[in-house]
Amino acid sequence: MSEKVLRILVAKPGLDGHDRGAKIIARALRDAGFEVIYTGLHQTPEMIAETAVQEDVDCVGLSILSGAHMTLFPRVLNLLRTKGAGDVPIFGGGIVPDEDITELKQLGVKEIFTPGASTKQIVEWIRENIQPRA
């Protein structure tokens, strides 16, 4: 795919301050040739959805290690839908138990990466699964 470079929003929703993973992913995606926008910490779902729309991104990656994923992931999904950006795929990473992953995928989250996932794996997943939005 030599046409458009993917624009990816890496976001930290909620009060969680653990940003090691988000920063590593942001840097790895940038090094892999994507355009990366990092929100910084302590973002509300509203702020993330707003940034996603304004920056016209091709997908949103959410990082949560505080256990609030079952509230914050669905909130971002819904807000994107109300803003007419329901086609923007969401993926995520963090400490998320298996049964929550199943539920989140049913709600529309495309993929969740858990502790131990390599940056290569995530880059490959994006290359295979994310296309530039029309």
Binding site: L15, S66, G67, A68, T71
Partner: peptide, 10 residues
């Protein structure tokens, strides 16, 4: 409002 989803979780 900012506490939503986070109360008592970690």
């Amino acid at each position: 409002a900012r506490a939503e989803g986070e109360v008592g979780r970690e």
